[in-house]
Design a protein around this nucleic acid. Sequence first.
RNA 1: GUUCCCAUCGUCUAGUGGCCUAGGACACCUCCCUUUCACGGAGGAUACAGGGGUUCAAAUCCCCUUGGGAACGCCA
Length: 499
Amino acid sequence: MSVTLNPGFTEVRTRFAPSPTGYLHVGGARSALFNLLFAKHNNGKFILRIEDTDQARSTEESLKMMIQDMVWLGLNWDEGVDPVTLKDMGAYAPYRQSDRLAIYKKVADELIANGKAYYCFMTDEELEAERARVKAINQNAHVESPYETWTLDQAKAELAKGKTAVVRFRTKHLRKDYLLNDLIRGEVRFPSDMVGDFVLLRSDGMPVYNFCCVVDDYMMKISHVLRAEEHLPNTLRQLMIYEGMNWPTPQFGHISLVLDDDRQKLSKRKGAVACDQFMKDGYLPEALNNFMALLGWSHPEGKEIFSMDEMIKLFTLDRVNASGAVFDRVKFKWMNAQYLRAQDNQTIWNQVKPYLVAAGISLPKEAGDTAWQMKSVETFKPKLEILTDAVALYQSLDDSKFEISEESNEALSWEPTKAVLTTWKNQIEAHATETFTEADFVAIENAVKTGANVKGKNLFMPIRVAVIGKPHGTEVKLLVPLMTKQSLLTRVNKVLSRI
RNA sequence: GUUCCCAUCGUCUAGUGGCCUAGGACACCUCCCUUUCACGGAGGAUACAGGGGUUCAAAUCCCCUUGGGAACGCCA
């Protein structure tokens, strides 16, 4: 049940550290979810840190969208950026890396002072040439900087002349294998020469991911780093920095990637991977969380549908598997339908209504009544998988959108159809009230049956066409009570004029 | 190319040496319910990548092969 902490840590603290460069992606959301589940399962804290050191790509707008998506999903964090004010919230502030520049600078200076890092004055051209050289060797070679051998005084003199430099971490003397005991993958051995001298600080003074990540994780006392597998190779660099600073290392767990149908990393280019898009399409956040959890984790009893509380209660890393998982949209839709239909009708109506309004669907005036609303939800519910489905469903009640579909032609061509529809029309016309009950409809249908002397599909298919313009769909008996006499007459007249 | 990671039905997965003639879910097929389409119910087909070991016993442990993926930036 409880989890071990590395020396130097006193409580479980996890973090999600997105860079605000776009919408929240399901891969990221899943990492956030796992971090939250792990933290909460172990009575720990979940932190949201903003990695905005890439100033060219980070925007405040993205930050807001990202936070909005997290809030929508209910992935609530204990520390980080306040979801409303966007101000720092927590004891380890600031939580935006762009506000922590002085901290990184200080650590870098320390690394430089004790020889663990050095200034490198290579120009872009020189770097390019060096990369070409290394590529030609075609071995496990790395870019080598001629400045690695410079003394600090030499470098400082160069700096004094106004030259700019990056700060590189020195790896030459670290030629040994690094062993990582990954929480999910077990022992991972990184060979000694896997990386060359890597950049800590850019020439403009901005820190690079692997560096600020370590500094922040250390200073924010992050005990467990759960992140996507793509970061596995980064871990070696980070381990080197921890070692260089003599800092206690957290435990790492690398979660598998979320894949596209083609088994490649789910990409923003291949559509609908943004949480925001799922929200707009009418997926429920609970369903997304549930579905994401199942991408790599499994319920101990094999359950497929479970609440966030249940996940927190049962989430353990030993049930997280190491292989990549394809994001199956079809199953996701099924799961969403389960969540959607498990709600009460009033809740569903409240969720559906904005979509109807947005789509400009005009409903009969009875739609203002709760009774009508509940009845409509009840009849359409079996076909609702995502909220946007409601548009097409309710559209069948909008007279201005009434059309006779191509597939109706067959039913309209049947010999007795004209008699059926004429009788239907007369019956509707003769109806005493403006609306119908289920029983009214049954009575009318029976009257048509005897009046036109037709039964079976020859009877009900034409009627359905006269009601919704299609031979298939929702049960007419349930549909008619949602419509008005006027509406039904308009429709049958239109259909009749086609025969 | 180099390094690392991964490998059970089409997909998500259960399985941690005997309970596996491999279980569940989505999708698919059949039937039932239904005067349509759905929903719901009952069945069905479909998988341990291959080859070597270890062991009385292997989907489970080891090795090799093959396949897939990721990373190799002054992106994160």
